[in-house]
Nucleic acid binder design. Structure first.
Lengths: 189, 189
DNA sequence: TGACGAACTTATCATTTGTTAAGTTGCGTG
DNA sequence: CACGCAACTTAACAAATGATAAGTTCGTCA
């Protein structure tokens, strides 16, 4: 539930604010393969996944380069777009039939200026996004593909239940063929 | 000048606030190789470089893995520490004799709660740090070592005037020997 | 139920990067 | 001034990853 996630970050979230948030939110049921936001378009929403799974990727020389995975009970948006006001560098696509809450960003900004609590939520979320990016950058810089694979296998096994190995390979920074080789070498161990 | 940098971000920065900032700041002259913040210690400051150059790195299997370069007229700190309250994962060291302004973080936080303008500065800076990390992560994920080298050579040539090639190689994610090879292959072109 | 395609694996060879060690250059310092 | 050291390069070989193509498995759907 979206309020559980919010309250885990800021503590109690009063009913009056819940009502405000609901006013600018829409629940959407989307099919597998549905494109939520396309590369080159502006990002005007914040999303929350009630059920399902979403990936974010970029076209690099004809291949999808996956940079983010989002699962049930996660918020997602292109924070880079919000900060820079640029068009989206990524495409966001559902990999399963999903139910998402779509929150209007301009209206959310308006709430932020009028109610400090929304500002706090926004800041805390931005901090979480930063730490996530920072961590993943360190993983890419400091560890081998094999170590990165083993990390995700051990620490984020849920990913393997929702995304295919080609997308996971891309996320790790290697090809699907290389990942297959790494997986093979691990079995006799 | 530090105020030019601040005003480039938020516009006019009134004299009364300048005085407040100066009260919690100390100008320090440090030697080449001086360690400003050590891995494993808490990060309680924000720094601004009046003159000089600073690198941030982490010990990975006996090698320095450089993750950040900072030059004159730049702010720097370990933002990850501020967000998570963890001890520093990086060591920050001057690579030249430098002059830096050291700003007390707890006192800065106190100013933030009392004067909204400091909060705004903090948020804008955090956004810049995020975009920087995001960009560098994309560079690592989407481009080859050679492309990354060419990017820095073209877009950030100042780096080459202050940091040695071993540190630059580390920053790009390869060994100094590999970087040397890449540089060699480029000359006959 | 049978054909197709997506997901994944395997094999082979090319390319990139790492590792080790030796060589060169230039600068600071006793 | 000469010595030593740090920065950088070069060479030879090893290891990791990419690219291409073919093979396997399995679920979907006409």
């Amino acid at each position: 539930m979206i309020y559980n996630v919010i309250e885990s970050v800021i503590g109690h979230f009063p009913a009056e604010y819940k009502a405000m948030l609901e006013e600018i939110s829409t629940v959407r049921h989307i099919d597998k393969e549905y494109t939520i936001l396309e590369q080159g378009k502006h990002c005007n929403h914040l999303w929350f996944i009630n059920k399902g799974a979403v990936k974010a990727f970029e076209w690099i020389e004809g291949n999808e380069r996956v940079s983010h995975f989002f699962l049930s009970q996660m918020f997602f948006t292109n924070y880079y777009c919000w900060v820079t006001k640029n068009k989206s560098d990524l495409t966001y696509k559902a990999v399963e039939d999903s139910e998402i809450i779509e929150i209007d960003y301009p209206k959310l900004e308006a709430l932020c200026t009028r109610h400090h609590i929304f500002d706090t939520i926004g800041r805390k979320m931005a901090e979480k996004i930063f730490v996530q990016e920072y961590f993943n950058k360190k993983l890419l810089l400091n560890y081998t593909a094999k170590e990165r694979y083993e990390y995700f296998e051990k620490e984020q096994p849920e990913i393997f239940q929702h995304f295919n190995l080609k997308d996971i390979a891309s996320f790790i920074g290697i090809t699907d063929v290389s990942l297959s080789r790494i997986r093979k070498e691990r079995i006799p161990k």
